[in-house]
């Protein structure tokens, strides 16, 4: 049995006059410690699927299992990183990082020290007393990463977390995130519309098609690319070749 199992998920959105089928019979297995990306044209239900995996939306049909237990019954948290950082502007950085333990009434001295070490590790140790509006976009997204990691989630869900950043910051942050993920042996699912990012970061790429959202194809990223950091992966000769393959598939869907 896989670490994360998505089983026959279908989801409908209802409005007063109409309904739309966002997802249809999605099934997917993710192994422990692996990294999977979801890509596809806009409106293919990527974010809906991620929200369902996170247990934030109840699917119309099907179930999500994490270590063979329904996601809705999990009491440990799922790490969820959004497109923007959504740091609370009235809390300082360390308070923002500690919001998870605070919510879970688990705010101990060790956790606080761990949060400080984590901020140190991702290169923003001197900002803990600052407020979010004093930080740049890249730094804020680092804080959001620390906030997600501090609760020690079993599963990390990334909803286009780098798309609002400039290119240079994005590359740096991709490398940082991969380093951290490898170090803590985390299982992750990334939603993105950036093929390059999906190739550079993940081991498998799930291509979704729209109306209704269905799995069109699953790619295995070449081994030599997986080994490299996201930045170096982009320099690898087989990268552009693989990029073309994925690109053509994606084009044929639109």
């Amino acid at each position: 049995m896989a670490f994360l199992t998505v089983k026959d998920i279908s989801h409908l959105y209802f409005t007063e006059k109409n309904y739309t089928k966002a997802l249809e019979e999605i099934s997917l297995d993710v192994e422990k410690g692996s990294f999977v990306s979801l890509i596809g044209p806009s409106g293919c239900g990527k974010t809906t699927l991620l929200s369902i995996i996170a247990g934030l939306i109840q699917p119309t049909q099907g179930e999500v299992l994490l270590e063979e237990e329904a996601i809705s019954k999990q009491n440990s948290s799922i790490g969820y990183m959004l497109q923007q950082d959504y740091l609370f502007p009235w809390k300082n950085i360390i308070e923002n990082v500690l919001i998870g333990p605070h919510i879970q009434k688990n705010l101990t001295k060790e956790i606080t020290e761990q949060a400080e070490r984590l901020l140190e590790e991702i290169g923003i140790g001197n900002t803990k007393e600052s407020y979010p509006n004093q930080l740049s976009g890249g730094m804020r997204q680092r804080v959001a990463l620390a906030r997600t990691l501090i609760t020690d989630p079993k599963l990390l869900l990334l909803d286009e977390p780098f798309s609002a950043l400039d290119y240079q910051t994005k590359l740096k942050l991709e490398n940082l995130v991969m380093e951290i993920l490898k170090k803590y042996d985390m299982t992750s699912v990334l939603v993105t519309h950036d093929i390059g990012e999906a190739i550079a970061m993940s081991e498998r790429i799930v291509l979704l098609q729209s109306n209704p959202g269905r799995i069109a194809k699953i790619f295995n990223v070449p081994k030599e690319i997986i080994k490299l950091s996201p930045f170096d992966a982009r320099q690898e000769p087989s990268y552009s070749e693989f990029f073309q393959t994925v690109w053509k598939e994606l084009e044929s869907l639109e």
């Binding site: 996170a54 934030l56 948290s77 919001i99 919510i103």
Partner: peptide, 9 residues
Amino acid sequence: YIKVLRSFN
């Protein structure tokens, strides 16, 4: 913001 908090249960 609510989504962030809900992800922490």
